[in-house]
């Protein structure tokens, strides 16, 4: 699974730490997600989508091998 968290962060002018604090995770978690090293839970995905006021599908998308 890929995501556009980094792009969304840039649009909203947020640092990894800002986003992490707003959704209640550590900055390492945001970093790992942006590097596609960690697939977030549904709960966390929904929280992030809600924060950016976008549908989940606009931020997280499947890859061919998923």
């Amino acid at each position: 699974m890929k995501n556009s968290i980094k792009v969304q962060r840039a649009i909203h002018d947020m640092t990894q730490a800002d986003l992490a604090q707003k959704v209640g995770v550590s900055r390492q978690t945001i970093n790992a997600m942006e590097k596609n090293k960690y697939v977030p839970s549904t709960v966390l995905s929904l929280k992030i989508a809600k924060l950016f006021k976008k549908p989940v599908e606009d931020i997280f998308f499947l890859e061919a091998n998923d």
């Binding site: 992490a20 995770v25 550590s26 390492q28 790992a32 977030p40």
Partner: peptide, 11 residues
């Protein structure tokens, strides 16, 4: 627990 215990640390 870690300082910030979240799902990534759990994993």
């Amino acid at each position: 627990k870690e300082k910030i215990e979240d799902e990534f640390i759990y994993k």
